[in-house]
């Protein structure tokens, strides 16, 4: 069997305690939420913390009864499980795009353990990397862990591992903000700035910081949707995600964001595609133009399931599909 290596496990009760223990334990320590990403990674020696600090017992990070809803939007707790997110009536009604993206994540069993915060902090993925230690040894490792070369792009100085979270592109598209709490205090970052296009340094969050709140903007005239491409509907990671968001004013698109998931180390906004629909009534020509605009820069790498050319081709199909779905919602 593939065994989890031994480690020390801490269960702080407060944010303060967590931050203190984290700084005391130093760089060889990590936070864990549901563990559905971290523990399999530890088995494969991707992360090798000697101390694992669980966020599960910290009340401030748990959903407090109902998620808070205010005129300024909705605040979500990072320790909300994906199942809680999917099943929350309030979210299903007011933010169906979140419930939809969460529902597309893996299996019911995983969603019972996996959390929203963990999903947003998910390690980037690559099929040269998500392999056992022995396997990686056979390719002499890679840049992301224990090696010197990126096998996906050998001449590249950086790692191209893929951000494979289904909720991350949605958060970027709808313009969510994240509250981070660290040893130096609190700060708020826009979801778009939380992610970085680097497979190793994929978050602007410092290792000691805890993602403490997810703030979703109020529903004031926007619609959003998320389309996910994968081999099996039952539990695969995305090989392409399309999050599309539009603000509708006077029967026209006033503002739009189209963000691709699973094609870069961060959720990838395609402003060209968004620009193509602004001012339109989401008529076929505008949608086609946007689909083409998203297709052109889409550069999938050879590190997930399916072939590159097909994945690129699917960008067009999925952007088209997502926008047509939005049209049907808005024109009603």
């Amino acid at each position: 069997m593939l065994r989890l290596p031994s480690f020390r496990y801490l269960e702080p009760r407060t944010l303060k305690e967590a931050l203190r223990w984290k700084s005391e334990s130093g760089p060889e320590s990590m936070y864990v939420a549901g563990g559905t990403d971290l523990y399999p990674n530890m088995k494969r020696r991707h992360q090798e913390p000697k101390v694992v600090i669980s966020l599960a017992r910290i009340r401030a990070l748990r959903p407090k009864g109902r998620s808070r809803k205010a005129a300024s939007g909705l605040t979500l707790a990072p320790m909300m499980t994906l199942t809680e997110l999917v099943e929350s009536e309030g979210i299903r009604e007011s933010y169906p795009v979140l419930a939809r993206a969460a529902e597309l994540i893996s299996t019911p069993i995983l969603r019972n353990m996996g959390t929203l915060g963990g999903n947003l902090c998910l390690d980037t993925r690559c099929n040269y990397y998500n392999q056992s230690y022995e396997w990686r040894k056979a390719i002499n490792f890679c840049l992301k862990k224990d090696g010197a070369i990126c096998w996906v792009a050998p001449s590249s100085p950086r790692c191209w591992a893929v951000n494979s979270s289904d909720l991350a592109p949605v958060m970027v598209a709808i313009g969510a903000d994240f509250l981070l709490v660290g040893p130096e205090g609190e700060r708020t970052v826009a979801a778009a700035d939380f992610y970085q296009n680097d497979g190793i340094d994929y978050l602007s969050k410092h290792p000691g910081e805890i993602l403490a709140e997810i703030r979703v903007p109020p529903r004031d005239g926007w619609e959003a949707t998320y389309w996910k491409l994968r081999r099996r509907g039952s539990f695969d990671f995305p090989v392409l995600g399309v999050a599309a968001w539009v603000r509708w004013e006077e029967q026209k698109v006033a503002e739009a964001r189209i963000v691709l998931g699973a094609v870069a180390s961060q959720p990838q906004p395609v402003p060209e595609a968004a620009a193509a629909i602004i001012g339109s009534r989401l008529d076929d020509e505008a949608i086609e133009e946007a689909a083409l605009a998203a297709f052109r820069p889409s550069k999938p790498m050879d590190n997930t399931d399916f072939g590159l050319a097909w994945r690129k081709e699917m960008t067009r199909q999925f952007v088209r599909g997502a926008l047509k779905e939005l049209r049907s919602k808005l024109v009603e």
Binding site: N127, Y128, N130, Q131, W135, A138, I139, W151, R231, R232, G233, S234, F235, D236, F237, D305
Partner: peptide
């Protein structure tokens, strides 16, 4: 297998070796 990378098995795991589940 990855012919260019030491002929390693590309996807020796239940997640990435794609086989249908009951839902497929």
């Amino acid at each position: 297998y990855r012919a260019n990378r030491n002929l390693v098995h590309k996807i020796p795991s239940m997640l990435e070796y794609k086989s249908p589940t009951t839902l497929e």
